[in-house]
Amino acid sequence: MSVSRRGFIKLLGAGTACLGLSKLGVDLAPAQAYAAGMKIEGAREVISICPFCSCGCNTLVHVKDGRIINVEGDPDYPISAGGLCAKGAALKSLHTSSERLTRPLYRAPGSAKWVEKDWNWMLDTIARKVKDQRDKDFTLKNADGVEVNRLESVFSLGSSQMSNEECAVAHQSLRSLGIVHMDHQARV
């Protein structure tokens, strides 16, 4: 892996070592002696990608004690050269927002409230819903008597927020259930 860190302090004078290290996930601390007070000192640096528009700006995520303490642009990404727009620049506060959903929540029919549930209960209950609905509504043949093997009463929407790997497993799962009402942000 060759990482040049173009864009870091281009003009700050030759011979000065850069903070960014050549390898992913290496502790920054031993590389250089730092004065106290710079918050990403000693942080682990991980390459991620901004989850907003399709420019796909690579980011550097700085992690300390298991927490994200900073996100900034990756200067090696040829398209952005380390820049980020307002949305990308806000990634640290978005990841660490107190508004994040952190537990599975259930809303019962007619209720105005969310109730916390454990994952197993959620997944088991969802699986049962899916199976019962599929068994009830599955269409083996269409009006012309042709085999169609589809489930029209269950839909799926999303998502361009998923990775390619997630999209692949999602597509396969949905087709295996026979779902045909399947769409996502490509039309939004």
Binding site: V154, S159, S160
Partner: peptide
């Protein structure tokens, strides 16, 4: 009323 249930991810 012809659709009974479904999935939404990141949408």
């Amino acid at each position: 009323g012809r659709i009974k249930g479904g999935f939404i991810f990141g949408h």
